[in-house]
């Protein structure tokens, strides 16, 4: 086992964690403002696709990143319109965006590159060390940034107030809807970063459904982390580590535990935590509730 837990495993863990962490921080912002964001999965996929498409159009991966993030933010804005202005069911709207994202990216891949499975290779973002994208440290840097913004700034505290008790926040003159729009769109930016990381940070191309449930995992990690940035980071590290160990176990072979069970472990842990066995996980009290004014 000595050569199993290597520096490579640690790096793989950070690489697998980064996209989850971006999305989890996005989900955190949205949920703390009071809007459930099941659409993270689809928004990541949109970010991943448009980052590659943008890089392919402009020839510059940084512009590609910008286009990917903007596309995901636009998708998030649709979610916001439906959830906040139309007062649609937040879960229904989120699932719809996931379906649209999966379909539209597959459709556009076919239109642009005339093949079914994915895009051509494009130039990727630079690495900081071998095999590790520059976006990996950014994901971890965003943890204290999000924490400071939410818990130490005036808009952040207003967001929290609107998420806990929208009516009370409205009554003291906070425009809850405006802050919710801001947070949902920011969650799209974060999910877009996570998706772009997958396509032009870690790899250099887009494949169909390349997020493969990471948006949902991020949501679970955010909950496992008790709706706090630090907790979300620790929880995403757990999911990331289990994926890294699984990859390593598959590469090495004859690992004592089945890789399927290894990967299943964080899901099981989240389930157990949700059932209240590990510690209390309390969502923002105003989650899913509409503010009084449109």
């Amino acid at each position: 086992m000595g050569d199993f837990f290597t520096i490579e495993l640690l790096k793989a863990t950070l690489r697998m964690t980064a996209p989850l962490l971006f999305a989890a921080l996005g989900g955190l912002l949205s949920e703390r403002s009071g809007i459930m964001n099941i659409a993270l999965e689809g928004l990541m996929l949109i970010g991943a696709f448009f980052a590659v498409a943008g890089t392919s159009w402009t020839g510059n991966p940084w512009l590609g990143l910008l286009i990917g993030v903007l596309a995901a933010a636009a998708g998030a804005a649709i979610h916001a319109v439906w959830c906040i202005t139309f007062r649609a069911d937040q879960i229904v709207a989120g699932m719809a965006i996931n379906l649209v994202a999966a379909g539209i990216t597959a459709f556009l891949v076919q239109r642009i590159w005339h093949k079914a499975g994915g895009s051509d290779s494009v130039q990727k973002l630079p690495n900081i060390t071998s095999g590790m994208s520059i976006l990996v440290p950014l994901a971890f840097l965003l943890v204290p940034v999000v924490w400071y913004f939410l818990f130490r700034t005036r808009p952040g505290l207003r967001i929290l107030a609107g998420g806990e008790h929208p009516q009370a926040a409205e009554s003291v003159g906070i425009n809850v809807s405006r802050y919710r729009y801001l947070c949902v769109i920011l969650s799209g930016v974060m999910a877009g970063l996570g998706g772009a990381y997958l396509s032009i940070g870690d790899l250099s191309y887009f494949t169909l459904d390349m997020t493969s449930g990471r948006g949902f995992i991020a949501l679970a990690a955010m909950i496992l982390g008790g709706w706090t940035p630090l907790g979300a980071m620790l929880a995403t590290l757990l999911f990331g580590a289990s994926q890294a160990v699984q990859l390593q176990a598959q590469a090495i072979g004859n690992f004592p535990i089945s890789p399927d069970l290894l990967v299943a472990f964080p899901y099981l842990l989240t389930l157990v935590a949700l059932a209240g066995f590990v510690r209390h996980v309390t969502p923002p009290a105003g989650l899913g509730k509409h503010a009084t004014s449109g």
Binding site: A93, A96, L99, V100, A101, A102, G103, A116
Partner: peptide, 18 residues
């Protein structure tokens, strides 16, 4: 490409929800 049907499904849900 046939994936457009998936987009249509999503649009239907969005329309119902809207």
């Amino acid at each position: 490409s046939k994936e457009i049907t998936q987009v249509l499904q999503g649009f239907v849900i969005l329309a119902v929800a809207g």
